Simulated assay, not measured.
Amino acid sequence: ENALGISQALYKKTSSSFDPVKQYDAIAVVATSPLVLAVANNVKANSVNELIAYARAMPQKINYASAGIGSVSHLTFEVIKAATAMDAVHVPYKGGGPAMNDVIAGHVALNMASIQVAKGLIEAGKIKGLAVTSAERSPVLPNVPTLKEAGVKTADVDLRFWFGLFAPKGVPDAVKAKLDKAVAATLSHPQVRERLANLDIEPAYAPGNLLKTKLENEIANWTKFIDAHGIKPE
């Protein structure tokens, strides 16, 4: 899961005893799902470019909520902020629910939310969805453009949720092979794929060696970004 890469990059100097690459065996990549740039209705911006202009016109006046320091929502928006030179103040919450509630209420300007949370709120007119973090538009929010469409070129990190199956280090090869086969078979089942599609979760099976490489790359790329921008775990 992408939180593994982020947390290892952010807390590596204070939690050096934890190393997911060394302590887990990668079994398989399972799926991916985008985040949504969710904006309060009282923000006078209906596109990413309008939001950028709005934030630049009022330095330090725009704030963004997250599920907490070091969360996926926090670091994802930091990447967008760096790519667009937006001047926005981080307001960390104790969880995604309280963060989104304050976006709905208009107390904070925006939040990076899972598409599963954002979809119903956008359709109900409670928030605005300005962009998704996937490479292509989401089939469940087809009117919401991608960051790429808005001209936002981000750092070399995966801004989607990605999900992988790991096991404790040292699991027998036969067990790992059985788990890998089960993941591949499950994700190929039409009913499973339909259910995931309805949640905008894209099956993305890949074997364990590719999951291990992905995690290693994510740790390296998030470390580079976090160090370059001086992001601290407090």
Rank of each mutant, 00 (worst) to 15 (best):
N111Q: 09
A131R: 11
K94Q: 10
E149M: 02
S114T: 15
V48A: 08
V103D: 08
V91K: 11
L141H: 08
I69A: 05
A135C: 06
I62E: 01
S73A: 02
D102P: 00
I122E: 14
A155M: 03
G95E: 02
L110C: 10
V140Y: 10
L147H: 10
K153C: 04
A53H: 04
K148C: 00
Y93F: 15
A124T: 09
G151N: 09
T84L: 12
E50D: 12
N101Q: 15
R56M: 07
A57S: 13
M58W: 02
D102N: 14
M100N: 02
A124G: 11
V89N: 14
A135T: 15
Y54W: 15
V72L: 11
H74P: 00
L130S: 10
K61F: 08
G70H: 05
V140N: 12
G96K: 07
G125N: 04
A85T: 11
P139G: 13
P59Y: 05
G120E: 13
A85H: 13
I127P: 07
S134N: 12
I80T: 04
D102H: 04
P142N: 12
A67P: 05
H74I: 00
K128D: 06
A83E: 09
T154K: 00
A118W: 08
N63G: 05
T133P: 12
G96W: 07
A109F: 01
L121N: 11
G97F: 12
S73Q: 08
V72Y: 06
V144M: 13
A118V: 09
P142A: 14
A105F: 10
P59K: 04
I69C: 00
